[in-house]
Every structure is written in C-alpha cells, then in structure tokens.
Design a protein around this nucleic acid. Structure first.
Length: 471
RNA sequence: GGCCCUAUCGUCUAACGGUUAGGACAUAUCCUUCUCAAGGAUAUAAUCGCGGUUCGAUUCCGCGUAGGGUCACCA
C-alpha cells in the first residue's frame, strides 16, 4: 500500500471528553483501522490560558476505556514524535520562516486596542471586519515578540471537496490575514494543525462541522506553503438533548467516563456513537468494535445534526449486556453489588432485568434483592392468591413442601423444582394458587423473579424454612 | 448582520427520479406468564412551505421558513 491511510485525533487539553469528541476520535480510528492505516493521537496544547491540568491523562484514560487505540501518541511515541504541539515549536517556526521568506507572513504592527477599534468601526458600519483591509504597506521584521500573520496569498472564492458533504465553497469574505503564531510564541490551531498533519503524513482530516467556515483559511495556508491538503471529512454536529444547540461542555455535556460510572459498557458507548451520524446501510444495529471497523465507510456519514438521546443508548447497552459471557457479566455485576451479595447464581436473573449496571445498584438500594439474604416481611393478605381461601393456600404450601422434600439436595435446581411444582400446579384449578404463595413467601415481593429460580438460589433448607413460616 | 451547513415518524435513521415511504428506540395493545422482567406479535406515528423541471419528485433546481455553525493572539 503506497498510500497508507493516516488519521489523527487532536484534542486540546482543556478538560474531559464528551461524546462529541469521542465520536470524532472513533470515526478517525475506524477509518484508519478499516484501511489498515495509522491512527495518531496528538495533543494540541497551544493555549496555555485554557489548558486544564491532568487533561491529557484524562483524555488518554477515556480513549483507552473505549478501546480506541492509537499507533502513535504522546504516551507511546512514534516516528513523528513529539506529539505535544507545545514541544513542536521549532517546526512551526521553520514553516513560518518559509512564509516570511515568500513575503506571505508579517508581524502584526497593531496593538490589541487598535484592532479592537477597527473591529468596532466595522460593526458600526455594519460591515464584516477584515483585518486584511488594514494590512501594512510594508512588513517589519518579525522578532518573535509580536503576532505573526498570514498574508492571504490570493483573495478569492474557494471551492473544495469534502468526503462527507461533497462540494463546498465560500466567498472571499471568509478569508483574512489571520494569526499564525501568537505573541507568546505558540502557534494557533489554524497554523499548527496544518504543519503537524503535513509532517505526520496525515491523509484524512476528520473534524466537526464548525470548521467548515474556517476551511478557506486553511486552504490559503496550504496555497501559501505550496502543499496539497489532506482529504477532508467533515462530521455533522451532535446536538444537546433539547435538539436546540450543538452539544457543548457548558450546556451540561457529560464526561464520557461518567457513562462508565453509570454502568454503561464501553462497547455500547462506541456502538451508540458510531450510529449517531453514520449507518451501515442495512438494518444492523448492534456492533462490536471489529464489526464497526469492517462496516464503516465515510460515504455513509450523514449531513444533518443528531440529537443526543439516552433512550437508545440504554437499549444498546442492554443488548451488549445480553451478549456478555457469564464470567464477564459476573465481573461487571459484582462491582456494583455489596460483598455479601456476590454469588454466582444471582447473575442471570439480574442481568435480564437491567439495562445498565447502575440499575443493579438501584435494585440493591430499593431492596429488590434483599430477600435473597434475609427472611422477607410480608402480609397475610398478599400471600393469598385472588379468591382462593387461606385454608387452600396452606394446603397448597404443604403440597409444595412435600414435593421439595422429595427432591434430593444436590438436585435442587430451578429446572427440577419447576418440573415437580408444575406437576402439582396443573392438577389445581389455577397454577397461581400454588405458585403465587410460594413465590410470595420466598420473596415477600409483589414483583420478583419466578419462584423456581428463587428457590434454587435460596437452597433447599432455606426454601423449606420460609414455606414453613408462611404456613 | 455577512458567510456557510442542514431539514423524512417524538428520537436515531433507510429509500440509482418510480416503494403501500422501510427499520430501530420510545409509547400503546395483545400473546406468553402466579407477578415483574425477558421474549413474540400488532398498532399509532414522518417527507417544513410554495413554486419549477419531469410522464413521475422524499430525491434535482429556485425562493421562503426553521434550526445549527462561524466571523478570536480558542480549538
């Protein structure tokens, strides 16, 4: 493969990752894996003001949790190291110098106050503010203490192709002499990502639709440098739950790791986010990561914004829980159970009743599982099934005890219990007059798993004792 | 405001210009069932509006409308 696919995810370390960032990372990852390419993690830490300590570790932790793995990155190095922009300043300077030498970059002679005045003036005149209209006649020498601006090589309308959106274009007003390198010596995103992508051999840039408007600026840099841009694949926005606004941290977007704390599986998150803006073209909905890699295609990414809605996530999570092996299920569920409830037999009945693991915690808190561990409290009235007389109920419970006593302790399984109980139940007017009082005297709950499995879990002795007590 | 993007059930979405506009989630009902859950079945529910092109428009074009994005020494 001479044209190996190289994609990257390049977050800025300004805090946690929410689902928007995760989806961008995921799509870039899937495309790289699908094409046996390379996926790079790069950290865009060029804004010291907004940087949040610990973010890089947090981002790495989030991606690792989701099983989105990179081939090159700040933690593992790689052929294009370093992967922190703050450590790549020499590169940016080098290319800045190329532009200066071409007469396509110059130091900004104005103070911030002066620029603010220009901007206000433009606003008063109801015109868009364009810095390039104030461009100095002659360029001073850049000593690195002032901002370095691009001189737009050619003021024109740009047309370009996007792998997702097709042909895009923007008028000349989208073009301006923007800042390449800030007064503090750090590059801006607009410049740095272009240099890094060039040096790292990135072939496909995946990013949110908020970057469409600045694409002409990027194109003018590629032009100024005389290089061919990578392919662009622009992703549709993810809207908040109200559907009104692009999802953002300030509107309560959650840390993706919090989903884990709420009992969502990473595979379910990945599955859910993959489907938010992309579909396989057939009716499959549940995917493993490998299935996503195999099915993923940029051409099937949608154009319109998708509203974030947890209902479907719950369902997808439930489907993934159903697919888990008993061991994995046990490992996960035990994390949410108190020590004394960590028994193997309880796993299947819990797993079919939850959509996320935090539900287990809720079941424990609501007392829905307590009956397994202590004799339940219950009322006589509820023990009785419909209009059956109390005497009849007692009679039936005695029948049950007799049947249970006939089962050997080692054969006391849900299956055998069901078989022997059903034999009796079918001779009665209704099965309920036998099964209900058994279930109720074992669990003390209106809603619970069936009596056979409960009896199995409780064991022969405890089962008999509870039935005896009920009588 | 300028520029740009988008528009199919409540939500996620499918449909070479020709389909009874399909699927999934959610909701409701029924079946199964001692209860709940799970499972099965069924139902309700959509092409933003107006023009145009065409034998035929969800699909192409124009104009509206609505939503979103962007106009930083943030990414």
């Amino acid at each position: 493969m001479e044209n190996k696919v190289v994609t990257r995810f390049a977050p800025s370390p300004t805090g946690f990752m929410h689902v928007g960032g995760v989806r961008t990372a995921l799509y870039a990852y899937l495309w790289a894996r699908k094409n046996n390419g390379t996926f790079i993690l790069r950290i865009e830490d060029t804004d010291k003001e907004r940087e949040v300590e610990g973010s890089v570790e947090h981002i790495i932790k989030s991606l690792k949790w989701l099983n989105i793995n990179w081939d090159e990155g700040p933690d593992i190095g790689g052929p294009h190291a370093p992967y922190l922009q703050s450590q790549r300043l020499d590169s940016y300077k080098k290319y800045a110098q190329v532009l200066i030498d071409k007469g396509l970059a110059y130091p900004d002679p104005y103070t911030e106050e002066e620029i603010e005045q220009f901007r206000n003036k433009a606003e008063l005149e109801k015109k868009p503010f364009l810095y390039r209209e104030y461009r100095p006649e002659t360029f001073g020498v850049w000593d690195g203490t002032r901002a370095l601006r691009l001189k737009v090589p050619e003021v024109k309308s740009y047309k370009w192709h996007d792998l997702v959106y097709g042909d895009l274009s923007a008028g000349p007003e989208a073009l301006d002499d923007f800042i390449l390198i800030k007064g503090d010596g750090y590059p801006t995103y607009n410049f740095a990502h272009i240099i890094d992508d060039l040096e790292m051999g990135v072939t496909h840039i995946m990013r949110g639709q908020e970057f469409i408007s600045s694409t002409p600026k990027f194109l003018s840099v590629y032009d100024a440098l005389g290089i061919t841009p990578p392919l662009f694949a622009t992703l549709p926005p993810i809207m908040g739950p109200d559907g009104k606004k692009k999802l953002g941290k300030r509107d309560g977007a959650k840390d993706v790791l919090d989903y884990g704390k709420e009992g969502y599986l990473p595979e379910a998150m990945v599955n859910f986010l993959a489907l938010l803006g992309w579909n396989p073209g057939d009716e499959r909905e549940i995917f493993t990561m490998q299935e996503l890699v195999d099915s993923f295609d940029i051409s099937r990414i949608g154009h319109s914004g998708a509203q974030l809605n947890d209902e479907k996530l719950d369902w997808i999570n439930k489907e993934h829980i159903k697919k888990m092996s008993l061991e994995d299920l046990q490992k996960n569920i035990f994390e949410w159970l108190p020590e004394n409830m960590r028994i193997q037999k309880i796993i299947p009945i819990i797993s079919e009743r939850i959509s996320k693991f935090s539900d287990v915690k809720k079941m424990v808190e609501a007392g829905e599982l307590n009956f397994f561990f202590k004799q339940p409290e219950y009322s006589k009235e509820k023990l009785v099934f419909k209009n059956t007389s109390p005497e009849k109920i007692n009679e039936n419970l005695k029948l049950a005890i007799k049947a249970f006593e006939g089962i050997d302790e080692k054969d006391f399984t849900a299956e055998n219990i069901k078989a022997s109980l059903m034999k009796i139940a079918d001779t009665l007017e209704s099965r309920g007059e036998l099964l209900h009082p058994i279930r109720y005297s074992l669990s003390g709950l209106d809603k619970s798993p069936d009596p056979f499995i409960i009896a199995d879990i409780l064991g022969k002795n405890e089962t008999l004792s509870r039935l005896q007590k009920a009588i």
